Simulated scan of single mutants.
Amino acid sequence: MKYRKMSESDVERVLQFLSSVTSDAKLTWRDVEEFSGFTRQALQARDDIKGAYDVAKKIVRQGKGYRSSGQEIPLPENTDESLRDELLALRERVKQLESQEALWNRRWYRIAYNIRQRGIQMVDVDKVIPLESKGMTSRQVDNLLRPFEGVIPPVASRREE
């Protein structure tokens, strides 16, 4: 077996693979090894790849949801029609929320990854603001956080080439 050092393009390719994992997929380190051609140890040595794997694994687990067997719990036969409709609507809403949570998890991973790429440690992001600091005005905070409000943006699974 030929060994070589993992390049930044290799890392990016593995990160794209992990970000494209869907909630109905099966994911193991062996899958990532086969895709990348690198050993599990080499992959886990990279914090960004290990973090992406953890997020992808969480998405896969969430996809199983309350239906660990892969099938929905059947409705009782004597269920009132209005209760049946409400239960079906609630199940659909749960699916939507699980999907949104998966998108948010991917988005927060990207945010954390990009913060780390700029040399900022995650523990530094949520530190208490020192009393002697000038701080920010409410308007500055609103302007800074506005892009993160509203509808969940689409998740980019592949870099545009």
Rank of each mutant, 00 (worst) to 15 (best):
N78I: 07
A25S: 09
F35Q: 04
S69F: 15
L75A: 15
L87E: 06
S36Q: 04
V123M: 10
V32E: 00
E86L: 15
I59R: 01
D10K: 02
N78T: 12
R106G: 03
D31M: 05
P76S: 15
F17K: 02
K95P: 04
Y113G: 04
Q62G: 10
R30S: 02
Y109V: 03
G119N: 05
D126F: 03
L27D: 00
R61C: 05
I73G: 07
S9W: 09
L27S: 01
D24A: 09
L97W: 13
W104G: 15
L18R: 01
V60N: 00
K95T: 13
R30K: 12
L75E: 10
K127Q: 14
P74D: 04
A45D: 12
V11T: 11
K58H: 05
A89G: 12
Q62C: 08
D24Q: 13
W29S: 01
Q96F: 07
Q96S: 09
E12Q: 11
I73K: 07
W104T: 15
S99A: 03
D85N: 14
Q100I: 05
R84E: 11
V11Q: 01
E92F: 03
S7N: 08
A112I: 05
E33Q: 09
A112T: 04
L18K: 01
R116N: 01
E12N: 12
I73Q: 06
L18T: 03
G70R: 14
G70M: 11
Q71W: 14
A102Q: 02
K95H: 12
Y53G: 06
K95R: 13
T22Q: 08
L88E: 10
Q44W: 06
G51Q: 09
Q96P: 01
G63L: 07
G63H: 04
T39D: 09
S19Q: 10
G51S: 14
L18E: 01
N105T: 10
S9G: 06
